[in-house]
Design a protein around this nucleic acid. Structure first.
Lengths: 238, 238
DNA sequence: CAATCATTTTTGGTATACCAGATTGAAACA
DNA sequence: TGTTTCAATCTGGTATACCAAAAATGATTG
């Protein structure tokens, strides 16, 4: 996405597998096997695993195989609290520093998002959703903010993806995005703060619903989206 | 500091060199030479460099030697803006969730800090200052927040260290820390937000002063603290 | 004398070999 | 039959060898 070095490509491959569920939470990532599977050596695979660890997608344990992270509801909620603070700051700074071109670009993404919402694969849809929020962070003209924000978005990708797949929130999401764009266009920092906080507050609720449903039924929410036959074991296979 | 693995130890060693100025900004870190100097092989040195890169202390360039970061005033200011948002969130959450023990511990650090302020090496003093802010983040009971916050503190260590070495801000810093502790004890989220924002706002001013002084005179502010004869070349040696 | 091109050297990227600690499973003993 | 112990093996950590790309250097030519 940013780099095209070998470790970055490996990381991207693993990341997709994790986010789509092909690599289930709790699964071990043995650097020997995974490297062989992709036909690379252990050194770049090592680096790829570190990249994913930095993003919070895998857990590193001393002298143990890294495992795919299986965040609890609290962990996800905590991360969203941070994401919210970062997005609010992004929004405020974007109101101050965004160029008109950038704001126009953000509106463009929003309209594109609205247009394709109903007939697009959830994963692709999320790419667009993500680019919307990333664009706002970039419009803040604060590079460390944009980077940290992006890393939180990546970390929360899977949780957001799973919770939003049912699309119950369609109208609300589109309306809230519209409000955020409007606040940006009028450069209204108070409004954008309120709108972003509201947007993410609903995300917390949605993800909470998802977790409760999952933990209650242990099965009513299937994993596969279109082409992967995997289920999601809750604990490590032993 | 957290881990005691070999790469972590190497990173700690390099970090000290960078923060104290032994490794000047802009200097190249060649993984071969640096590894040989410390008597380790390139593999752990590689990882150590990545750790420092994640912390923002060194810059990685594709197929080029990594260099010690030499942040501009804008970059530092931007990072402080993020730090501020993170600290404010920490403070608010700590007001809600900190245990009485944790608050007592934070007060303890503050009193220790006040007591030793006048006759302590700046580097050691900063360790204590840092532990004060880290303790607040931990009291938020939000792990990702605490981690991200810590990484920003680390990233800003050098800038904070250089700007505060002159200790002009002594009374103000102590008073502001006291206010933050008081707000925590009364669990007053509004007050702690104001106090933390004020605290960091002054940090921005201080660092701004430092940069202007440095860029104006190019020499009035010596680098060495006690035992390193290095000066600080502003650009890469060629 | 300057500019350009080729060669040499330096450097990070990658692969692989080796090692030490941890895990596990079987065997032996209570 | 249950428990303990020990060895085979698995796994990540580390060292090192090799490669390709990029600088640097110097020679050659205009």
């Amino acid at each position: 996405m940013t780099d095209n070095s070998l470790p970055e490509k490996i990381a991207a491959s693993l990341r997709r597998d994790i986010l789509r569920g092909t690599l289930a939470p709790g699964a071990q990532i043995k650097e020997r096997d995974s490297a062989a599977e992709l036909g690379v050596s252990r050194t770049p695979m090592r680096e790829a695993i570190r990249i994913l660890a930095k993003e919070g997608l895998v857990l590193l344990r001393p002298s143990r195989s890294p495992v795919v992270a299986d965040p609890t509801l609290k962990e996800v909620t905590d991360a969203i609290a941070v994401l919210s603070a970062l997005e609010v700051l992004s929004g405020k700074l974007a109101c101050r520093h965004a160029t008109v071109d950038q704001i126009a670009g953000i509106r463009g993404i929003h309209e594109h998002f609205s247009a394709i919402y109903d007939y697009t694969d959830p994963v692709d849809l999320f790419e667009v959703d993500m680019s919307f929020h990333v664009a706002i962070a970039q419009a803040s003209h604060n590079l460390p903010l944009a980077e940290t924000h992006r890393s939180y978005l990546e970390r929360l990708w899977r949780a957001r993806f799973l919770s939003a797949r049912r699309r119950k929130a369609r109208d609300r999401v589109l309306r809230q995005h519209g409000q955020i764009v409007a606040a940006l266009e009028t450069r209204d920092e108070t409004a954008i703060t309120r709108d972003i906080e509201e947007h993410l507050e609903h995300l917390v609720v949605n993800i909470g619903d998802y977790f409760h449903a999952r933990d209650a039924g242990e099965g009513p929410i299937p994993e596969g989206t279109q082409s992967d036959p995997h289920d999601q074991p809750r604990k490590e296979e032993k």
